[in-house]
């Protein structure tokens, strides 16, 4: 029985996010209450970006109310190839993640000289 409750609590939930964009980057802001730096994993893999976070909260005493269970977080986004994977920056503060996804410098159109054969 204890194991069953444990497994229920391990179902991840999708964190709420805001997504912003300007010329330089896409900024993703996510609510991750109870998540510390060490329990957060951000993976950019191919054309997806995955946030995964564990809430390491030890149960204390007897629960009197159960409005919600602490759940882990998981959410996956599709990201454009124009995002520079190597320069992604993350900042976690007060349970809020700011994820900066910089765009690659725009490709300048290349002029192809036409030679007379």
């Amino acid at each position: 029985m204890a194991r069953e409750i444990q497994s229920q609590e391990r179902h991840p939930t999708a964190p709420l996010v805001d997504v912003y964009e300007n010329d330089k980057e896409i900024l993703l802001i996510a609510d991750l209450p109870g998540v510390s730096k060490d329990s957060l994993t951000i993976r950019a893999d191919g054309d997806t970006l995955t946030l995964e976070a564990r809430r390491a909260e030890v149960p204390i005493g007897t629960p009197l109310t159960r409005e919600f269970q602490t759940q882990d977080f998981s959410r996956t986004f599709g990201i454009s190839p124009s995002i520079d994977r190597d320069r992604i920056e993350a900042k976690l503060e007060g349970g809020v993640l700011h994820l900066h996804l910089p765009k690659r410098a725009p490709v300048t159109p290349r002029k192809i000289p036409v030679r007379v054969g």
């Binding site: 709420l16 996010v17 805001d18 997504v19 912003y20 964009e21 300007n22 900024l27 802001i29 996510a30 609510d31 809020v96």
Partner: peptide, 13 residues
């Protein structure tokens, strides 16, 4: 906490 100078695409928070 909306940042300045950005277009908003999604606001769930």
């Amino acid at each position: 906490d909306a940042p300045e100078g950005y277009a908003a695409y999604r606001q769930e928070r």
